[in-house]
Write a protein that binds this DNA or RNA. Structure first.
Ligand SMILES: [Zn+2]
Ligand SMILES: [Zn+2]
Ligand SMILES: [Zn+2]
Ligand SMILES: [Zn+2]
Lengths: 139, 139
DNA sequence: AACGTTATGTAATAATATAACATTAATTAG
DNA sequence: CTAATTAATGTTATATTATTACATAACGTT
């Protein structure tokens, strides 16, 4: 599988840049923005925005990370790739900016089965809830 | 109510720039982007991006338009300000890019009452469905 | 080896959005 | 009404987010 030195072993099926960027996002406890990611991986040899965006695109596509659209930021999937990124839901604190991925099978079932009269076939959805989190309410 | 000349009559409660930009968005059948709006209202004297963004911010705040987060674009509310922009849902065709606002009271009730175990109080949500619309499916 | 596909490197630029500061208009309180 | 306050505007510059274009390298298959 590998030429000789046993380097470049793919931990999963991610390429080098994808793995670097995924590792960074995964260990973060908050959504990361593309240029913040860039500045954090420059020491690893990733120099240009496009390298970051390409890796992000791929990671989103395979469901390992999600984009929080209202924040233009990215976080690691807490579930199982959300069935390849087809069904995502988040709760966002408007005070402390904390974002959590919602895992609620009833909600997912409900939305998966949602059908308005338009005749449109839904393949994917993204839901973002906003409010004030527990910690912020306590204060 | 007015000084003398009967000019500057407020049609609603929108300021001049807000009204110009709202009129443009309302008559469009697709979501409009900020810089596209800008180029369309320059003949009306609105010259800078910030003038557009300020009007957009206000219009979003009062629920007369919504931002389609996944497209960075704006469309007029089809409902009644969606209770001042607190509950929004859209269907987006991935083929022709058509966006429609979803009006479905059961969905709204369901999401309004949604409560996970986190203890977070939700004040607002935005939901975006993606798929292929009727027309595009027919082709 | 040859091919198609995926990933990378690099530079330039496009598209989206905000900061900072000065001014004017509209609303409210006394 | 006048002063104080708040909301809206005008303008310039700049920050942030994202893509185009083109060249090269690595990978997977046959
Ligand atoms: Zn997920
Ligand atoms: Zn909070
Ligand atoms: Zn609406
Ligand atoms: Zn369509």
């Amino acid at each position: 599988m590998n030429k000789s030195k046993n380097k470049n072993v793919q931990k999963q099926d991610l390429s080098k840049n994808q793995q670097i960027i995924f590792d960074l996002i995964k260990k973060s406890n908050e959504p990361l923005k593309a240029y913040s990611i860039l500045s954090n991986v420059q020491k690893k040899g990733i120099k240009a925005p496009l390298q970051v965006y390409r890796a992000l695109d791929k990671l989103v596509e395979i469901g390992k990370i999600h984009k929080i659209e209202s924040k233009n930021a990215f976080m690691a999937c807490q579930n199982s790739g959300c069935q390849i990124a087809k069904a995502t839901a988040f709760s966002i604190c408007e005070n402390c900016e904390k974002v959590s991925e919602i895992k609620n099978s009833k909600l997912f079932e409900y939305l998966k089965g949602f059908d308005d009269k338009s005749g449109m076939k839904y393949k994917k959805y993204n839901l973002e809830f906003f409010g004030v989190c527990n910690e912020c309410t306590a204060k």
